[in-house]
């Protein structure tokens, strides 16, 4: 009897485990391309969460479905089930297992977070704890947790150069980027590949959110503060920057192109842009505001007037993929 139970449980657990592992592999394909060093760490974590989640969902959900199918009362069967009111061993086990699982998840997440070292806002307290260590890429020291070099995923060059510093200015509803060394301004975010980038995030009006899905990174931008934000792009290509914190009427169009370029292309672009006369950038919010609303249903409510189109060296393409026409 005992052996039979063990065998049955194993016969169930093995396929569920296999399916869960398979789902964990699939999880990578649900994400955008891995364009930053951080995205690799996060995708591994997500894959792990999907494995655990699938296992639990199939285990518990399967038990429920099994009961629904096999423990039906017959049409004229009005008897009661066995009056089982509890089972201390079982209850202890199913309390300890989740405790163990969430400790595992929290520990792994903590580890990933310290490896990312994205320099989150930290004005409130200045404790000296692992969370506030120097960026792993800027200064290739040892990771405090693992005592190993934390440049996992980032090539050697990333740790050699100092981080590239770029200012991010957000206002309703446009992004503007400034490269202080060359005094270049742009409405496209150009980034060098394989090099640590340090952004200084600022807003001139309300909260905004700096979010590039391909980098898996996000940080709200808070008025009257400059928030440092660090990461390492690792894949050449074109991505989207989205405003992730609701910012009013034209929130949905507050987007920008992100171009990750080889170091040479990046330098060349900076040099060219520095020589260009500033011109007015295309501004989706302003153009929608000035245009007579052509929507089917329009109440004509007043709205905040969009900030004027910024004058920049690199006005960018009129690159919104969706227009509201």
């Amino acid at each position: 009897m005992k052996l039979r139970t063990v065998l049955t449980l194993a016969a169930i657990a093995i396929p569920i485990t296999l399916i869960s592992l398979w789902m964990g592999q699939q999880a990578y394909s649900w994400m955008p391309p891995q364009a930053s060093a951080e995205s690799k760490l996060i995708d591994d974590l997500f894959s792990f969460l999907v494995i655990l989640g699938t296992f639990i969902f199939l285990g518990v959900g399967g038990t429920i479905i099994y009961s629904i199918i096999f423990y039906r009362a017959g049409k004229y069967d009005f008897s009661d089930g066995p009056p089982i009111e509890g089972n201390v061993t079982l209850e202890v086990v199913w309390t300890i297992i989740p405790v163990f699982l969430v400790i595992w998840i929290a520990g792994y997440s903590y580890h990933v977070y310290s490896q990312m070292a994205i320099r989150e806002p930290m004005e409130i307290v200045h404790l000296h704890n692992p969370m506030e260590m120097e960026s792993a890429y800027a200064a290739p020291e040892k990771n405090l947790d693992t005592q190993e070099n934390v440049t996992k995923g980032a090539p050697e060059s990333a740790v050699v150069l100092p981080p590239e510093e770029i200012e991010v200015h957000s206002r309703q509803w446009v992004w503007e980027f400034r490269y202080p060394e060359q005094n270049v301004t742009s409405t496209e975010l150009h980034l060098p590949v394989d090099r640590r980038v340090r952004l200084a995030l600022q807003t001139e009006d309300v909260l905004h959110g700096f979010y590039i899905p391909a980098f898996r990174l996000k940080q709200d931008i808070i008025p009257n503060r400059t928030i440092d934000f660090e990461f390492t792009p690792i894949r050449i290509g074109k991505y989207r920057l989205e405003d992730s914190q609701f910012s009013g009427t034209y929130f949905a169009v507050m987007q920008a192109d992100v171009l990750v370029e080889s170091p040479d292309d990046y330098k060349q672009w900076l040099a060219q842009a520095a020589n260009r006369e500033p011109s007015a950038a295309y501004n989706q919010a302003a153009s929608e505001y000035s245009r007579f609303s052509d929507k089917a249903i329009k109440p004509g409510w007043p709205t905040i007037v969009p900030a004027p189109a910024p004058l920049v060296n690199q006005p960018g393409a009129t690159s919104l993929k969706t227009y509201s026409q």
Binding site: L49, G53, I56, F57, K218
Partner: peptide
């Protein structure tokens, strides 16, 4: 609810939430 609880724990994991927060 089982499904929602599982995605809830995922959201509780800071690095993953930084990606999906406000999405």
């Amino acid at each position: 609810f089982l499904f929602a609880g599982i995605t809830g724990v995922m959201l509780g994991s800071v690095p993953f939430d930084i990606h999906v927060n406000n999405t």
